[in-house]
Design a protein around this nucleic acid. Sequence first.
DNA 1: CATTTGACGCCAA
DNA 2: TTTGGCGCCAAAT
Length: 86
Amino acid sequence: MSTFTDKVLKVVKEIPRGKTLSYKEVAILAGNEKASRVVGTIMSKNWDESIPCHRVICSDGTLGGYNRGTEKKRLRLEEEGAIERK
DNA sequence: CATTTGACGCCAA
DNA sequence: TTTGGCGCCAAAT
């Protein structure tokens, strides 16, 4: 805590199942609205099983990216009902 | 210490 | 609607 990075990780950990937050939303909750990119950067460098990073998507509703495969991320969100399967 | 990179976001054409 | 470009900030090189 105390650093933006730690806040981001904390916020993402707090995301409930079936809910998705955009990188921008996470950035805002972490205390820096303009750091949307940083959120993604942090995740890519610190991909952790304790962190449901698959719950974090782009503000446009697009999935964004995922260290284990974007397809896997999509399936997981669909399974949780966070998004509509199109 | 300086520069580049990158799982983004928003605006203009 | 789809591209292209700028901004923004932390981490990596």
